[in-house]
């Protein structure tokens, strides 16, 4: 019998599979399809200081083996998330990770302080990598000094461990990872989407109203694997891996590269049962490749 459990800072996961932020809302819709307690954890949609409407529509476009999105961090604001969304999630036997976003360091601090004090929250995913907002977001995720600064400040106010979500839209992902590790990050979450664009041949304009969008789905999986593989060799904090995971085999590939757990994103749109299907298939898949625990797989490509 395979052991699927894994302990990470602040997180006792019964299995390594969590829905990724932004692809699962605040869980309610997917609870119609299966029991959310089956999940390793849930990474909820980004919270900002105030309510945000986000970008104009269209906000999504399909691509080869993936999709572009530019939602623009639409959310009801941290206070309302705490009062309206977290109590429902607290009913399930699974850790909840809050994705924290902002335009300024002050906003990140405010959101992190508030949400980390909620009893339902076990950890924070610090979103310094959203490519779809004009201010903040990714600019904190592309300059190591800024990334380290916001990490340090959020760590100082957070009651729970902080996983920093890295952007792939950088020339040197390892230096970003090292900078946030030195600033006190408890873990890394990688990767966010890759910035992309699609044009409509009739209108001759971008399909997505925002112009650019974040590319996700199987198309970006090799990029994420490469980045995790290189970062794993250079840092000592755990990595939550994400980008195009659709199957239990994909999960194993992430673990071999160096991830300790994974987040499953846009495939939830294609198959609302995706996380459950992957979790169900994981023991047999591990067994097929001769593994009985996650520890044996994690970082296996480096041994």
């Amino acid at each position: 019998m395979s052991n699927l459990s894994i302990n990470l800072p602040g997180l006792k996961l019964k299995n390594p599979v969590m829905p990724a932020s932004g692809c699962f809302g605040f869980g309610k819709e997917f609870s119609d399809f299966y029991d959310l307690s089956e999940l390793g954890g849930i990474i909820i949609k980004a919270a900002t200081g105030e309510q945000r409407y986000g970008n104009p529509t269209p906000r999504v476009a399909e691509t080869s083996s993936g999709m572009l999105n530019a939602i623009g961090l639409q959310n009801p604001g941290v206070d309302q998330i705490i009062t309206d969304e977290l109590p429902f999630l607290g009913e399930f036997d699974t850790p909840i990770i809050a994705n924290v976003a902002g335009s300024t360091v002050e906003e990140y601090i405010e959101v992190a302080r508030k949400i980390s004090r909620s009893e339902q929250i076990s950890a924070i995913e610090l979103n310094i990598s959203c490519p779809n907002v004009k201010e903040g977001g990714v600019q904190f995720g592309t300059e190591p000094d800024l990334a380290a600064e916001v990490t340090r400040q959020v760590k100082a106010v957070s009651d729970v461990p902080v996983y920093v979500k890295l952007s792939p839209n950088v020339s040197d992902i390892v230096s970003m990872a090292k900078a946030v590790e030195q600033a006190g990050a408890d873990g890394l979450s990688m990767i966010n989407t890759l910035t992309g664009m699609r044009l409509d041949l009739n209108s001759r304009k971008p399909i997505i109203a925002n112009g650019t969008g974040g590319l996700s789905g199987p198309a970006i999986k090799p990029v994420a694997i490469r980045m995790i593989y290189h970062v794993y060799q250079q840092v000592n904090i755990p990595i939550i891996g994400m980008g195009g995971i659709e199957t239990a085999e994909d999960v194993m590939e992430y673990l071999l590269a160096g991830a300790s757990a994974v987040a499953v994103g846009s495939v939830n749109f294609k198959n609302p049962f995706a996380c459950k299907d992957i979790i169900d298939a994981l023991p047999e898949t591990m067994n097929k490749y001769g593994f009985s625990s996650l520890e044996e797989i994690i970082g296996g490509a480096h041994r």
Binding site: C23, E29, D32, A61, N69, I71, S266, P272
Partner: peptide
């Protein structure tokens, strides 16, 4: 244009 179609993605 929709993403998830179930109300989770805000597309």
């Amino acid at each position: 244009r929709m993403g998830c179609g179930v109300g989770a993605c805000f597309a």
